[in-house]
Structure formats: structure tokens, C-alpha cells
């Protein structure tokens, strides 16, 4: 079941001088089982958009369909908790939500809130910690004494332990070191490929979008300006330039080579393929 937005608007502080339209008439379809990137400038409505997915924000107008739920403007939906268990949302800088005495307890907090027994919650927490690359030695440590990157992993494990079928991540790699970033993105890709999770990821990093994601949504002034597959979006750099986005290095490289007379078909999407294509064409010219 895909996620659908139908004519969704969201207005902050309506009826006060601080009124602010964050989303206006959004129509969107997010494919199930895919990894979708949401990009756009600061203030374009990305964070507001993703907070509709687990009903932290309820639409001011229109309706949102998530899994088997329909959330309509004006209605007061009940049992939001069950939805929040199915759609896991990881906020920006989630390390600030840690509060328990030990890492294990903190990760188990989510599942326990959704009615999982103490023992099962601990089991789920252990599994989630392993997924994010933290071994048993971390279980009994205080989450507050870990490094920034480790805290981030614990916080993400806290959502994974709930075993949601949709995972929404708001800039999960902001402030991580390059290796940590790649590890994190690989983890999300694996969750998507192996475990069939639908993943939505808000990011500013075009390399991540290009390398790891299937689809891309570009937000602009509270509206999705483009919703396309990554292949279509990065076919050449023209769409990126139009959106004022710096294209991934590989696309820029291809552009520069094209200018010098090289020709590439659509399948050249990684370093190896590019190197192969260059070698082939250079040899042909002898």
C-alpha cells in the first residue's frame, strides 16, 4: 500500500500574526518498498511533509493515506499510537532524545511503549543495536557518555527496534564523519533491500541520493516540484542545474567528458562503468 498525499496543506499558527503556510496543496505518491529521497532547500517544507507520515502533524487541508490509515483534515483520528509503531520517524539530531540509564533500556523503550514484553523488547533492542553496528559491550553503558556518532546510532536503533514497516529519516547523517555516513546509508539500503522496508530519507547530500536511493522528490516552497526516479532525475545535469542543485560528482564528470566528445548511454551509473566506457572509447579512437 503506497503512501499518498491528496491536496494536503499545512499551516503553522493559523489565525495569528505568525501564520505560516509550510505545505500548500501537496499531491504525492510514495512507492512502497522503495527508498525515496526528499530534497529541497531549508524551509521548503521537507520536515513538515515527513511529520505527516506518522500523524505528528495533522493536515490543515486534504488527506494523507499511510498504510491502511486515512488521515483527513478536520477529523480527530484515534489510535495514532498503532500508526506510530508502523511508521518509525527519526528526527534530525535524534541523539537528543536519549534519556534512559543504559543503552539497552533506551533502545527497548520504543517497543515497550507499543506493548512488547520486557524480555522481547530487550531482544529486539539487541538485534537493533547489532544492526547499527554497536556490539554487546555498549548495552550497559549510559547513552549520555557516548560520542556523538554512537549516540546517533543508539537513537536510530531505538526506532529500528520498533520494527516499523515504513522508516522515515530526517537528515540522519548530518554531522557524521564520512565513513559513518556511508555505513549508515548502507544500513538503510540493506533494511530496504533485505527486509523490504519502505524508506523515506530527507537529505541535502546528492551523492547519497544518487548512490543509494530509488526515487527522488524535490520540494520547493511547500510543494513537490519534481517526483521522479533517481535514474530520470540524474540522466544529465540539466534538471539539477534548473533546481540550483550541485549534481553528484559522477554526473559532473560525465558532463565534462561529454563536452570533450565522449558519448555515454544511460547505464553508466558508477565509477566502474564510467571507467569502462572511457577505456572503450579511447581504444576505439586508437
Amino acid at each position: 500500500m503506497p503512501i499518498e498525499f491528496e491536496h494536503v496543506s499545512y499551516i503553522y499558527s493559523d489565525g495569528t500574526p505568525f501564520r505560516y503556510v509550510a505545505l500548500s496543496d501537496v499531491n504525492l505518491n510514495i512507492e512502497e518498498g522503495k527508498m525515496t529521497a526528499v530534497i529541497g532547500r531549508t524551509g521548503s517544507g521537507k520536515s513538515t511533509l515527513v511529520q505527516h507520515l506518522n500523524a505528528l502533524l495533522l493536515p490543515s487541508e486534504g488527506k494523507v493515506k499511510v498504510l491502511d490509515r486515512v488521515i483527513e483534515a478536520g477529523s480527530k483520528p484515534k489510535q495514532l499510537k498503532s500508526l506510530r509503531g508502523q511508521v518509525g520517524l527519526v528526527f534530525q539530531f535524534p541523539e537528543y532524545q536519549l534519556f534512559e540509564e543504559t543503552v539497552l533500556k533506551d533502545v527497548a523503550f520504543g517497543p515497550k511503549n507499543f506493548g512488547v514484553s520486557e524480555a522481547d523488547a530487550a531482544e529486539k533492542a539487541r538485534k537493533a543495536l547489532k544492526l547499527v553496528g554497536l556490539d554487546e559491550s555498549y548495552e550497559q553503558r549510559s547513552p549520555l557518555e557516548l560520542s556523538g556518532g554512537q549516540k546517533r546510532r543508539v537513537a536510530i536503533a531505538g526506532i529500528l527496534a520498533m520494527d516499523p514497516s515504513v522508516i522515515v529519516l530526517d537528515e540522519p547523517t548530518a554531522g557524521l564523519d564520512p565513513q559513518g555516513t556511508v555505513d549508515m546509508m548502507k544500513l538503510f539500503r540493506e533494511l530496504n533491500k533485505k527486509h523490504g522496508k519502505t524508506i523515506l530519507i530527507v537529505t541535502h547530500d546528492m551523492e547519497q541520493v544518487f548512490t543509494f536511493c530509488d526515487n527522488v522528490i524535490v520540494m520547493e516552497n511547500g510543494k513537490p516540484r519534481i517526483s521522479a526516479t533517481v535514474g530520470e532525475f540524474f540522466k544529465d545535469s540539466s534538471l539539477c542545474r534548473e533546481m540550483d542543485i550541485l549534481p553528484p560528482a559522477l554526473i559532473r564528470m560525465k558532463d565534462a567528458l561529454r563536452e570533450k566528445g565522449f558519448r555515454f548511454d544511460g547505464n553508466v551509473n558508477d565509477m566502474n562503468a564510467l571507467a569502462g566506457a572511457i577505456v572503450k572509447q579511447v581504444k576505439k579512437h586508437g
Binding site: 499510537k81 506510530r84 528526527f91 535524534p94 537528543y96 532524545q97 523503550f109 511503549n113 526506532i159 520498533m162
Partner: peptide
Amino acid sequence: DETQRIIKAQESRGVD
């Protein structure tokens, strides 16, 4: 702001 952010983050973890 911080309080509202943390409320949302914990609500996402099933806090009622």
C-alpha cells in the same frame, strides 16, 4: 522549541 521537538521525538517512539 526544544521541548516541542523532544515531545515529537518521544511521541514517535510511542510515548503517550
